[in-house]
Design a protein around this nucleic acid. Structure first.
Lengths: 155, 155
DNA sequence: AATGATAATGATAACCAATATCAATAAAGG
DNA sequence: CCTTTATTGATATTGGTTATCATTATCATT
């Protein structure tokens, strides 16, 4: 197992621009609604729900509709630019996907997300395929807890 | 990492009896509705939704209501007798919890669930706590794919 | 076995995230 | 500038889950 390390997030403005050009290069139009959602999510350092993005996005584009938030997120996920997270209550939140599939550390209090590298589960995965006969297509590895700040606040 | 091994499920009738006595010993009453849900889930070899259990349970107890299914599942989970699983679409399914927290192998086609042992993520967990400052309280490790039967059927 | 306090039930309504509908609007290549 | 058509947003709808509440049934006590 390689050394585990936390990953620093790249610059938000650059990322937003990258996402918009990627949308454009795939035949999707760059609209004010999409700009608003992309900017909001690219700047975030926590995972956000569609409702969160709707609230933030309307600060930038007053006419923004909730449905457009969902549709934009759908496209961004399809292009592999963001990752949809599953919360224990069944709702979804979204974060930018830095490089392919990520393993995550989620704060149950403030929503902060840390991404980590260095855990190689491919050998576990292939062992399970051999022993179970399954063809493994996807996996989730997520840790839930309290981040450093929230540990101090929540006693 | 210890040797990974699949786990065989214990006898269904015994398990159902155990669950009912555990409910009783915790001050919960043993009703026909709860019997129906408990029996249905204890016999299952796949994960089931609340609606599934409602359908199966009504074969045993005609008056069974969907709400009682949810309430029974809530109690069983509270007592650590079953485990609630999170599907990518946000819905929930339920399986019997054999021994504490389980790591899972889920068939995306038929719902079959295999439990496996031998993956020790406690060292990964404690390493992440040191490096991130998080206090880790829970985790998910789930693999999704096709079981042996469904691989053959779905080409 | 009968009683009674109260946990549990189930029909119904309510809730909420997510999706479908559809006429009106705006992006972007020509 | 202009036309095509992808996109928008208000609204209605879906589907899983939870809340409400009068009625019923469990089970320790008698």
């Amino acid at each position: 197992m390689a050394h585990t390390q936390l990953v620093a997030k790249p610059d938000a403005a650059k990322r937003a621009g990258d996402w918009l050009s990627k949308l454009h290069s795939h035949g999707y139009r760059v609209t004010k609604s999409r700009r608003a959602v992309v900017d909001a999510l690219a700047e975030a350092d926590t995972s956000l729900t569609a409702a969160d993005l709707y609230g933030i996005g309307r600060g930038r584009h007053k006419r923004l509709g909730l449905v457009s938030v969902y549709r934009t997120l759908e496209k961004l996920e399809e292009l592999g630019l963001i990752q949809r997270l599953h919360r224990p209550d069944g709702c979804h939140t979204y974060i930018s996907a830095m490089e392919g599939h990520q393993h995550l550390l989620l704060c149950q209090s403030c929503g902060r997300v840390e991404v980590f590298h260095g855990d190689d589960i491919s050998d576990l995965s292939s062992r399970l395929e051999r022993e179970s006969g399954f063809e493994i297509r996807d996996h989730w590895l997520q840790f839930f807890g309290l981040c450093e700040k929230c540990r101090k606040i929540d006693t």
